[in-house]
Amino acid sequence: MSGNGRAARVIEAKGLTKVYGKGEGRVEALAGVSLDVAPGEWVSVVGPSGSGKSTLMNLLGLLDRPTSGRYVLDGREVSGLRGGDLARARRELIGFVFQSYNLLPRQSARRNVELPLVYAGVRGSERKKRALEALEQVELSDRAAHKPPELSGGQKQRVAIARALVGRPAMLLADEPTGNLDTKSGVGILDLFGDLNAAGVTLIVVTHDPEVADRGDRIVDIRDGLVFADERSGGVRE
């Protein structure tokens, strides 16, 4: 499950479409997106509101099903996966960071981080050890016993990142991870992403903030459900 032996492309998506609704209310959120992501890359996804960024992330994170298109994740065709295989792909290949954290409010930070390991079948003591390691990685060891309501927004997002990391996935997907945070906390999260990326973690980060986008190696600009631009970072600046 580690970086060794991974495919040349973490993500190979071809012609992904997503259509919501039918007839009058039909919305083509994605009109055919193709995207390749190499291991260790940091890809920023930008675009106007409603352009389909979140829709794309949900497809890439296996949280939703494309209407059509092909998706190869870490060398495996995952478009047709169902049931147990799909759940396994989610927990082994993907770490997802949400804008709104999506932590279980009553469980301690450590227990939240342990959650993916429960479904991976890791036994209790090992789970605890790895959760604490992940919390250490996000510099939150001293908050392991705290529950989400007792944490700041930035701290909550760190717990969420630790949870996304703990299963050692092929990549980390983050949909506006700093969207709910003040600038200072946001910078903290981005620094963390920088460290993780430096350590070899593949990152795809949706953002509205050009400065955040610039932290990535690449910027993918989505407009009206299509890739409008896909360039190396800095190339399109100013």
Partner: peptide
């Protein structure tokens, strides 16, 4: 329902 969504996003199967 949201909790169930979180659990599934983290790799829980429907059976789990």
């Amino acid at each position: 329902t949201r909790e169930i969504g979180v659990r599934k996003a983290l790799g829980a199967t429907n059976a789990d």
